[in-house]
Amino acid sequence: MVRLTPGWLLVAAPGVVAATVALAGPLVVDDAATASRGRPFLPPGPGIPLGTDHLGRDVWSMVLDSGLTLIVLPLVATVIGTLIGASLGLLTGWRHGALGALAVRASELLLVVPPLLITVLALNAASGSGTAVLIVVVALLGVPSTMRFTRAATSAVVHRGYVEHAVAIGERTPTLLVREVLPTVAAPVLADAGLRLVGAIYVIASVSFLGLGGSALGHSWAGMVADNVVGVPLNPWAVVAPAVGIVAVVVSVNLVADRLADTARRSV
């Protein structure tokens, strides 16, 4: 199993801090704190530790208030995508039929077109109706990788003694998959889901930077970066603070998930 070493803590710490700020921030900040304080892009001063943004609001309060989007939306999309992908992977890995092979082939189509391009096109087709479509698309984008990964892990487990024993005593397939196969492949699949989460954050953040995906996305760290980039010469903190938040989250999640996936892959 995985042991907590100083290396792990060091890698995870920035993400934990940023995620805490994002999750607890909205509870701390009230409407008065995010109201306009006066001129836009003021440098840091008394009462405004990171200066003001393009609408003259306190940058620190805005960072606290708008971190939630880039944590919650990718998480929801990743959970949906992992559930679909892992189910498909379990089923196709269990029974190596023509249908499974076809599903893998079809999923490769989603892998060769840049995910961001697919998302932009899907949002265009959805007439900009936004967040729900974005979550569905990002969830589906993760399905091929999760499916292939789970399929491979399942195939490796199928012929182990305890599974064959369960088959021999006549367990029904759904029971078998949930009770015998799932516990073994769960850890690698969860580690893989961490990597999918990084991809989901990447796509959702990039889409909101491009100004697509509805108004909910404008209210995010990525939206802050896009809105405040014109004011960098006057107050760089309005861009640097949300940018650092995004970097802390994605780098930590990626490094931790990569280590977990490595360990889990060796165990299967």
Binding site: I201, S206, F209, A226, I246
Partner: peptide, 16 residues
Amino acid sequence: ALLSVPEFVLATLLIT
């Protein structure tokens, strides 16, 4: 680490 950073974040930090 670099691989996981969205390009627009890198772009804005380089511009800054």
